[in-house]
């Protein structure tokens, strides 16, 4: 399919991409509006951005959201690595499948159910232990919880690809279990671990429904804040925020593209080396 060639397929694709990106660019376009609505563009201005940066409340929420995503993804990755290893080393196939189905419950459940059930859980815990209340810690626990199964699922395929004779060789050469784990298994799994961390991070950034249920009064994340502001009506500060979010996502995507391309190139070279 050449680029210059006119075809219905390309027109269709162009339409789909316009549909995918039009709302986003609509938001970005009006973030530069001098006026106060998303209806008419009255002139170019950056004052919604300065408004955004001087809104300390929102900036703190933004930092909180990133801190939360960073921490929850980190902890979930640690839990997930050893969960995946445990599932992989189970001897009975039926046990493995049972554990895997339990693992997947939180992935396939509707967000609202997860949020509601966690709310019940935390309130129940709150009646058992005094001093346990809704806030940063409950949101963190909830985010870790829905990220763990994703990490496990990103790591398991890598484990299945792993050549077990490497580990046998390690034992033959006198390595202990700690060394095997540290020097053979974890480095081999690192692409899966990074992908898992990344996924957990984006899930945490993106989540609204679960956070909404377990957040309580004191703590807010970006999604919950946008929700409550959007219910009050249009405020172009949110548009300015969208522009920044889009730029951030774009940087991540481009970075990810080059990293994965680099990895592919390297692994191809490696394969070639092995073949020779």
């Amino acid at each position: 399919m050449q680029k210059s060639k006119f075809s219905w397929a390309n027109i269709y694709l162009v339409c789909v991409f316009i549909f995918l990106y039009l709302p986003i660019f609509y938001l970005i376009f009006y973030s530069f509006n001098a006026g106060e609505t998303m209806n008419s563009f009255t002139g170019f201005s950056l004052h919604h951005f300065s408004e955004l940066f001087s809104d300390t409340h929102l900036v703190i929420i933004l930092l909180n959201t990133f801190l939360l995503a960073f921490l929850s993804a980190l902890i979930a990755t640690f839990i997930g690595i050893f969960g995946a290893l445990f599932i992989y080393y189970l001897k009975r196939r039926s046990h493995r499948n049972t554990l895997l189905s339990l693992n997947n419950i939180l992935i396939v459940s509707p967000d609202v159910t997860i949020g509601a059930s966690f709310l019940i859980l935390f309130i129940t815990l709150g009646t058992l232990f005094s001093g346990f209340s809704l806030g940063f810690w409950t949101v963190l626990l909830a985010h870790i919880s829905f990220s763990v199964p994703i990490v496990v699922l990103m790591i398991l395929p890598k484990l299945q690809e792993m050549n077990d004779s490497m580990i046998t060789a390690g034992y033959d050469l006198g390595a202990n279990e700690r060394q095997i784990l540290k020097n053979i298994i974890l480095p081999y799994l690192s692409p899966g671990i990074i992908a898992g961390y990344f996924m957990a991070f984006t899930y945490s950034l993106d989540d609204f429904a679960v956070t909404f249920f377990v957040t309580g009064n004191g703590f807010t994340t970006l999604s919950v804040e946008i929700y409550s502001r959007a219910r009050r009506g249009v405020s172009l500060e949110i548009n300015a925020l969208s522009t920044l979010v889009f730029l951030f996502a774009l940087v991540l995507v481009v970075g990810y593209y080059y990293i994965s391309k680099d990895n592919q190139g390297r692994s191809k070279k490696k394969k070639r080396g092995v073949l020779r």
Binding site: Y26, A230, S242, V253
Partner: peptide, 28 residues
């Protein structure tokens, strides 16, 4: 593929908010 994935990295609430502007009575 990355261009398909990119919109998923923008918060769902922001996308819903965009449509508040687009679908408004005087909107896009």
């Amino acid at each position: 593929l990355l261009l398909i994935i990119l919109p998923t990295w923008i918060n769902l609430l922001l996308k819903a908010y965009a449509f508040i502007g687009i679908f408004g009575v005087h909107g896009g």
